[in-house]
Design a protein around this nucleic acid. Structure first.
Length: 426
RNA sequence: GUGGAUGUAGCUCAGUGGUAGAGCCCCGGAUUGUGGCUCCGGUGGUCGUGGGUUCGAUCCCCAUCAUCCACCCCA
């Protein structure tokens, strides 16, 4: 076993049994995006390392220790994208999509992070993301949240996820709050655990999120982010919650919700579930008004989110929300007995596909006895078996045996098989 | 990166210090051309890998790799 070449740790094969569920999910997403007027953008999975260092933040865990970074043959430092927003902003800027205009974009694809794999967390995983540029009001924040809520409703997940909401304020307000928070933590340095000591200089806001019960009391007395918002951000946040209230979307304001990426400001949100163990975040995002400028563009407000497809698929499976017809077999399975029948079957299959564009027909190949062929027809999940044996060849007919319903076997003339078959199946 | 659990047939798992079994799957037969149920038979494993203890290791010990779960972090 160990000598055999295996997939890279944390990178999974998606097997045929799984792919219908993925396709179902992807189809839901595509139509949803289309319905809200979002257009798809596809960017390379490799980018210059500097793009991520400059956007996500030099001292975040992602950039410090989780990126797949390596040298190109010419010495450039390249990185497999750990998230989608940076590349999306880069591409939009590069092609002038942000020039004095608004944009609603979405993307989908693999992301890479070198973390220890566990349930719902993989080294290659897939995200669907949404990014809206050039709109600074709370209406667009509300729109992307409503869009995600609609997806949960479509998938039957809405009752199983919770929306958590917070505001980080403007970059300036956040910086001021950060200083105040660090000062508070300095006073209680003896209570801070090892992780938090480390974060004190790198990402003090994250300390608020700690699960360590020994620090709970100290954290409860810490200055609150929401008390230190600048006026504009507070108004923005109030207008957002008012819009969500009007739309009937429930949420929980979580003053300790801080995102791990540096570029967020003002609105941040997460959709979480308790059904997946410790990887409970299924979708997360927020506003990142400063990022475009930070990456060298003309300042443009932006808001977006990303959802983890593996986690959502896992959730659908856990909650038994997999649509039943996603595993459907072909309409017909065509089997043939004997050399001459085999040759005719190949052509008959083509004839039927020509005449009936929506027909799904699987041809039996590889010979075998009648019994084994019909057994395979059954296993394929097909609704009918089309039988082309020596007798049928002789008589210029084809047999139609229904495999999943009590119906008499039919014999169709080869002259008008397509019409007759189509009529039988409807 | 840290901690814990687990690695035996394609899958789910038993099992023993004397080199292995079940169920499912797959193939064939009972039924010269009619599946799902039943019965019978068959294919399939260097017992994750390397080393150690032992007359002998799949079992005991060590290491290593992988998977899973949790921490951390995050989608």
């Amino acid at each position: 076993m160990s000598k055999k070449i295996q997939a890279i740790r944390g990178m999974n094969d998606l097997l045929p049994e799984q792919s219908p569920l993925w396709q179902y999910f992807e189809h839901q997403v595509e139509t949803l995006m289309q319905r809200y007027g979002y257009r798809e953008i596809r960017t390379p999975i490799l980018e210059q390392t500097a793009l991520f260092a400059r956007s996500i933040g030099e001292v975040t865990d992602i950039v410090e220790k989780e990126m797949y970074t390596f040298e190109d043959r010419n010495g450039d430092s390249l990185t497999l994208r750990p998230e989608g927003t940076a590349a999306c902003v880069r591409a939009a800027m590069e092609h002038g999509l942000l020039h004095n205009q608004t944009q609603r974009l979405w993307y989908q694809g693999p992301m890479f992070r070198h973390e220890r794999p566990q349930k719902g967390r993989y080294r290659q995983f897939h995200q669907v993301g949404v990014e809206a540029f050039g709109m600074e009001g709370p209406d667009i924040d509300a729109e992307v949240i409503l869009l995600s809520a609609r997806l949960w409703k479509q998938l039957g997940l809405y009752e199983h996820v919770t929306l958590e909401l917070n505001s980080l304020g403007s970059l300036e307000a956040r910086q001021a709050y950060r200083d105040k928070l660090v000062a508070y933590f300095e006073q209680h340095r003896d209570v801070l655990d090892e992780d938090s000591q480390r974060r004190l200089s790198s990402n003090p806001l994250r300390i608020l999120d700690s699960k360590n019960p020994d620090m709970a009391e100290m954290l409860a007395g810490a200055p609150q982010l929401l008390d230190h918002l600048d006026t504009e951000s507070r108004v923005h946040f109030e207008q957002l919650t008012a819009r969500l209230d009007a739309a009937g979307i429930e949420y929980r304001i979580n003053p300790r919700l801080v995102r791990g990426l540096d570029y967020y400001s003002r609105t941040v949100f997460e959709w979480t579930t308790t059904a997946l163990g410790s990887q409970g975040t299924v979708c997360a995002g927020g506003r990142y008004d400063g990022l475009v400028e930070q990456l060298g563009g003309k300042p443009a407000p932006a808001v977006g989110f990303a959802m983890g497809i593996e986690r959502l698929i896992l959730l659908l499976e856990t909650l038994d929300l997999v649509p039943a017809d996603s595993q459907r077999g072909p309409d017909a399975y065509l089997l043939a007995m004997g050399e001459r029948a085999e040759r005719e079957a190949l052509l008959l299959g083509e004839t039927l596909r020509d005449a009936l564009p929506t027909l799904s027909l699987q041809l039996h190949c590889g010979g075998g006895g009648f019994k084994s062929q019909i057994k395979k027809a059954d296993k394929s999940g097909a609704r009918v078996a089309l039988i082309l044996g020596e007798d049928e060849v002789e008589q210029g007919t084809v047999g139609v045996k229904f495999l999943r319903e009590e119906r008499e076997q039919a014999s169709l003339s080869r002259d008008d098989v397509a019409e007759a078959l189509s009529a039988l199946l409807n």
